[in-house]
């Protein structure tokens, strides 16, 4: 199903603008992530697509050519996975998964068959007759997904589906979820504040900030060509290099860094993996902490910029804490972005 959102905005009573007018188009079978910090409007946008919130006047939500803006949530034929899963404690796993099919008034035999089908797909065999309270967090998450998918919804909406799990389980289920969504072949939108989750699961990521979409694109495009400093910071943890720009030179507290071209009025950012320890480098810095992370060292450096810089170093040895080192950054690795764009 293709999903078209036009001029969708939300002002809460009291005048707080949770979402500024936004347009978004999602292709059939595409998985799009809404990524942003809390309060950026991503959940509000998702809930408006679901029909759980009413957008401001003038909005239009179209599912495959059908205007659903005025339709209530129960008639929109959407599937939703909630952050807390919202599983019904008064029903078994089977009861939960079959509930949407029961609402469609399908014959009992067909409900049975389709519940079994999703149970197998979500690897819940053997748990069908258990109580919800007897399941682990990961199992509950799969039941929530199975329940949303069983009625074959037009679009699947996921609101922070992994955030209720602990860290180890989260990264494992992230890949499982990505695989399952691909197997279902469903158009899906999922909300997260975790860039790794968004990049692992989504075909396209919409980075949101302060009630608007700052940039939308493939994970790779966002990483390589962020449109704003916010996107660069949020996707790939870029760090600002704070100094004075003169022509194609950036004067930092630790030295003068060559830029790829004149960059007056711009903001210069760099990612940790692009900072090199280089005895011939133009910038000096002091090593504050060194953390060994197996494949590389994570080094916190002071004195080069106004704030601490993090460098990832993959040599066989690392400098000592307190040591002075020299750094270089390839001009083409720098992110030069317009200054003063809030989002």
């Amino acid at each position: 199903m293709t999903l078209t959102l036009t001029n969708i905005a939300k002002t809460f009573p009291g005048g707080v603008q949770a979402l500024l007018p936004t347009d978004l188009e999602i292709a059939k079978g595409e998985i799009v992530s809404l990524l942003g910090p809390s309060g950026c409007g991503k959940s509000t946008l998702l809930r408006m697509i679901a029909g759980l919130e009413t957008p401001d006047a003038g909005a239009k939500i179209v599912f495959d050519g059908e205007d659903v803006t005025r339709q209530s949530v129960e008639t929109r034929k959407i599937g939703m996975v909630f952050q807390s899963y919202a599983l019904f404690p008064n029903m078994s796993v089977r009861g939960n998964i079959g509930y949407g099919l029961k609402m469609q008034k399908l014959p009992k035999t067909e409900i049975e068959a389709r519940v079994n089908e999703v149970i197998a797909l979500c690897r819940l065999d053997g748990y069908a007759d258990r109580a919800i309270t007897a399941l682990s967090g990961g199992q509950r998450q799969r039941v929530a997904l199975a329940r949303a998918m069983a009625p074959r919804p037009r679009v699947l909406l996921l609101d922070e589906p992994l955030s209720a799990l602990d860290a180890a389980l989260r990264s494992q289920l992230r890949d499982e979820l990505a695989l399952l969504l691909r197997q279902f072949g469903i158009t899906a939108i999922f909300v997260t504040h975790d860039q790794n989750e968004a990049m692992a699961i989504a075909d396209r990521v919409a980075v949101m900030s302060l009630g608007e979409v700052a940039q939308i694109g493939t994970p790779e495009a966002l990483y390589r060509n962020p449109a704003t400093g916010f996107v660069a910071r949020f996707v790939g943890d870029a760090m600002p290099l704070e100094g004075r720009i003169e022509g194609d030179r950036l004067h930092l507290p630790g030295g003068i860094l060559p830029l790829p071209g004149p960059a007056r009025g711009s903001e210069v950012l760099v990612r940790a993996e692009d900072i090199r320890l280089d005895p011939q480098g133009p910038i000096t810095a002091r090593v504050e902490t060194v953390t060994f992370l197996g494949t590389h060292y994570r080094i916190a450096l002071s004195g080069a910029s106004d704030t601490l810089l993090i460098a990832l170093h993959s040599g066989l040895s690392a400098p000592q804490q307190g040591e002075n080192v020299r750094l270089s950054i390839a001009p083409e690795a720098l992110l030069i972005l317009p200054k003063g764009v809030a989002a």
Binding site: S72, E74, K77, G79, A148
Partner: peptide, 8 residues
């Protein structure tokens, strides 16, 4: 909300 999303 969960029930409503399933058509109830």
């Amino acid at each position: 909300e969960g029930a409503a999303s399933l058509g109830a």
